[in-house]
Amino acid sequence: MSKPELWVIAERRLDHIEPTTQQLITKAKHLAGDAFHTVVILFEANNDHLEDELTAYGPDEIRIVRDDRFPTATDAEHADALEQLVHKYQPNSILFGATITGRSIAPRLQAKLQTGLTADCLDLRFDDETLVATKPSYGDNIMCEIICPDHRPQMATVRPNTFVAETTPGEATVTTETIIFHPVARLQVKAATPVVNTATTVGDATRVVALGRGAAGAATIDTATKLAEKLGGRIGVSRPLTDQERFTHDDQIGQSGNTIHPELILNFGISGAVQYLVGMQGSQTIVAVNADKDAPIFDVADYGYVGDASAFMSALLDQFV
């Protein structure tokens, strides 16, 4: 008997693959072991080759459906195409990125298939062939494990940057599939323009200098900027600092901001509220400086200094040559 299929729905962003897709492929491979066949579903135009951005992550198969209408297809058109593939292949489970696109197409497909969909998951595992999805609720204050025992496929959207993409050796088989494209006449995508985003975001940085209310003075922020430059990193902030003119919501780390996994994060004057911690506790090396020895940030730190954030930061900068 052939293995059950575990699907990752590839998402495009203008001319590229949205990074969550690659993260999900890596996670799907870990979940699959030898028990599942991992398949990436990719919709693209006839002359596109977005699969080139996926092969290195090593899914068992990349199944491509080509149509020049896909790059500007609407949610309902994507869901319709997916429904046709689901009927043909009967996958066990389908994973989407919990991006705006994923969160828009997945529930539409769910309604067509009348099956279960768990939103914005932070973890996934299989108990035999049952997908156990962990999702936060009540603003990440509560975690729930959710299953969909009696309906297939099992579906989940997964929060971006929850897993880390890893390339692997090994070949992915690339196949093509056809569907009947049913255009929805009553909704047209008139234009899609890139939103200019000059700086790299805190989510992309491998080194992050994070500032909280205890490191919010203008001079401290200047020192932190220099430190971030020396480290080849970027500044991130806890929520209170987004009120400052120098920072925006895009710089915020945490539940209602960015989830990040840098190699190194230095936290200055941040207490370590759960809503902050969920956004950064997957970082590889965590350093915390806080005047309060009982600050919860120390519970997740590898290195900690109890003292003044600004003084420590200046001393650190001085010792960088």
Binding site: S137, I142, M143, E145, I146, C148, V300, A301
Partner: peptide, 18 residues
């Protein structure tokens, strides 16, 4: 179709602090 099988408070992963 979905069933909640478990609810719990998230625990931060505690690391060895140096």
């Amino acid at each position: 179709p979905t069933i909640v099988t478990k609810v719990y408070a998230p625990k931060p992963v505690k690391r060895e602090l140096t």
